[in-house]
Design a protein around this nucleic acid. Structure first.
Lengths: 241, 241
DNA sequence: CGCTCGTTTGAAAGAGGTCAAACTTGGTGG
DNA sequence: CCACCAAGTTTGACCTCTTTCAAACGAGCG
């Protein structure tokens, strides 16, 4: 199947709408941030040696955070940051960021500067916002990692695609037709699998009529079927629901 | 090898010392908490339906938090809580706790009540403490899960034992001789492996002279060798350091 | 003393990783 | 405009690790 017509739309859509109820707190954080700036693709935003100086709010584009590995080793990707995501939550009150952050495609961001956390957060209101965001972040990250950890690779990938789909949906895009700028290798590193496995499973999904994938363009044909695979897990093959 | 002499000491040691510099913030949080209470072994502290009403500070004993699974499925253990740990960090500003929390052995705890988070956290000081604890918790949990996720099972188990060793060391106990009240099955669920695999790897470690394990009592004979196994990973067999 | 539950050990099967080769695509230069 | 090159992707064969199934073992408890 060729690239669906909707992809051409997606590629040009540059809006930065924050429509999700989930990110209400972020909206107000955005008001406190510095002006937008643009980062060209494959550019380092944060190096491993940068000191923590604030949170970055992603307005458009895609970035990744990775762990430092020895040369020759495959990189470990800990986060993909999409529009609406916040970079640096795990580094508040620490001296340095967790790992280098690189843009995968051209992205626009704004900085919420933290010269001194105590100085910045004088308003009780800001404190509470931040607490909420942090606590939610712990929960969702933990849930995501546990899902990844405890499930076979097809379920991991299906869950990843559904998560992406939901994110795009929240941002006002189509949940079933989207472009993922990251490579297969990067998806594999994010999900802790070999890139060959990602390829194989995508091929299998295509054969089963669940989705259509052409390089960076994905088209989910059977969201329910995909969700069924994402929910299945090792210890309960006869899953019901 | 028989149970080393030190175990008898450990079993009777009921102190609740918080000597770690890592948990300075917790110390002061403790001052704000309600009196101690005791929970008998294998007792539910938090059910899946309990509404969030505060953080629990563990003074002694051992508890586990799990995820709700359908009957017949093996449980997923997301956390073990040792003395000095805080239960509920991922549930601040949420309505419910993440999953049921059960004591594995007799434990003593205190509650830091949060009738209303805004009411409780009037003092800026408390806010900052909590921010620090939360941010650190995101980072350490993330690191732990990534380690678990990306490494073979022997490295997972070695890392788990080292983590336990460090925790006991921080609490003022011996780092090389300790009692873990959880069963093999529970360790396996925590590390996302089959309990048989845990058994096999422990046997292997014993044969290799790395440790001696007798039911719930563990005696680390070669901490450096264990650390080497914990650090090795899939993509770099020729690890150096 | 015998029961039960957790643990250990063995054998077989399956999932995923590694290695290697073929293929596709986008960019470059003639 | 076309040929070529480099990088990413796909596919196949093989191998290793882990799980699963099954049975034996051991300790604690009535």
């Amino acid at each position: 199947m060729d690239t669906p017509y909707i992809f051409s739309k997606l590629k040009n859509k540059k809006t930065e709408i924050f429509t999700s109820t989930k990110i209400n707190e972020i909206k107000s954080l955005r008001d406190l941030s510095q002006p937008l700036f643009t980062l060209r693709k494959k550019t380092l935003l944060i190096t491993e040696r940068d000191k923590f100086n604030g949170l970055y709010l992603v307005h458009s584009g895609l970035l990744k955070q990775s762990h430092i590995r020895k040369p020759g080793e495959s990189e470990i990707i800990t986060h993909f940051f999409l529009p609406g995501d916040i970079i640096g939550l795990d580094s508040i009150c620490e001296h340095h960021y967790c790992g280098p952050v690189t843009s995968i495609e051209t992205s626009s961001l704004s900085l919420i500067k933290f010269r001194n956390i105590d100085e910045y957060l004088i308003a009780q209101e800001n404190h509470n916002k931040l607490l909420r965001v942090l606590s939610r972040s712990i929960r969702t990250e933990h849930a995501r990692l546990w899902r990844t950890l405890s499930q076979p690779s097809d379920a991991r990938l299906a869950y990843f695609l559904i998560t992406m789909s939901n994110k795009f949906s929240e941002l006002g895009y189509s949940p079933n037709a989207f472009r993922l700028a990251m490579s297969r290798q990067e998806i594999a590193n994010y999900l802790c699998m070999a890139s060959e496995t990602v390829s194989r499973i995508i091929s299998r999904f295509e054969n089963e009529g669940l989705l259509s994938a052409n390089r960076h363009d994905y088209f989910i044909l059977d969201p329910i079927g995909l969700a069924t695979i994402a929910k299945k897990n090792r210890s309960s093959p006869n899953f019901s629901g």
